[in-house]
Amino acid sequence: MPPSNERQAESGAAGPEKTYFTALAEGRFSIQRCLQCERAVFYPRSVCPHCGGVRLAWFEPSGRGTVYATTVVHRKAEQGGNYNVCLVDLDEGVRVMSRVDGLPPSDVRIGMRVRASVEAAVDAPRLVFSREEAAR
């Protein structure tokens, strides 16, 4: 059972969203697993979208995944140039939006094996990926 609002406030606990981004800010990529159906859950929630279970536990996934869909967003060079936006299927069975760094955006291919890292961005930490071969 989740603690009452009062106790949550006292203990400094936080909901799944804040918990996720707090970990990310500390360089840790963690996602949830449902203790009822044992499937991985992303994005972080208070209820399992697969089975309706309410007991979810955090764990650190392998960070390995496969590009499921990809696009190159076209921007003028003076606005930062073209960049990649993609969807990556993690080996644990969840999908995340992200981008693949370290190669031209048009070289990102569906089916490409990628590995996650946490980028310490100025505004907010971000989960990004690099090509698996390049990461070795």
Binding site: A69, T71, V73, M97, A121
Partner: peptide
Amino acid sequence: PYDPPLPVAAYALAASR
């Protein structure tokens, strides 16, 4: 955080797939 220009980026991803 990945700055997808929505909605077009979402449909572009679907088209790519």
